[in-house]
């Protein structure tokens, strides 16, 4: 019987094999998924689910989400990109989002780290103090 531990181990192994120089290789991922679907080894669906989750987490770790209340100009974007790439390495993907609910300021999320300098957060902090 294939236990959840085996499935986890196989998904992790597959995930490891999809990395080239510690960076995920999209072609290898596609190949791995196709092979799994074609050959249908035992527990392949669960392996696929776990594999997808590991990739999702890895993408999240290597993606910076920059949220601002208003659209920012290219100059500022370039400056932010430069700084973030210097901090987190050249493999970081950047995603700029406009979110008016922030009121003002900027929020940068990379993996599980959040740099928050938005007005809404400050207002919430103020609210908690009362």
């Amino acid at each position: 019987m294939l236990t959840s531990k085996h499935i986890k181990r196989q998904a992790q192994e597959l995930f490891r094999l999809c990395k080239v120089d510690n960076v995920l290789d999209e072609n290898r991922i596609r190949l791995a998924v196709e092979e799994l679907i074609q050959k249908k080894p035992r527990g392949h669906l669960q392996i696929l689910k776990l594999f997808k989750r590991l990739i999702k987490l890895e993408i999240g770790r290597n993606t910076a989400i920059v949220e601002t209340a208003v659209e920012i100009d290219n100059e500022l974007k370039n400056s932010i990109s430069e700084n973030l790439l210097r901090l987190y390495g050249k493999n970081l993907r950047l995603n700029f989002i406009t979110n008016p609910s922030l009121i003002g300021g900027m929020k940068v999320k990379v993996g599980s780290s959040v740099y928050d300098n938005t007005i809404i957060t400050r207002l919430n902090e103020l609210l908690e103090q009362f």
């Binding site: 940068v108 599980s112 780290s113 959040v114 740099y115 928050d116 300098n117």
Partner: peptide
């Protein structure tokens, strides 16, 4: 300077 605080989120 309005410094942005770094927090760990989940």
């Amino acid at each position: 300077k309005t410094t942005a605080t770094r927090r760990n989120v989940g």
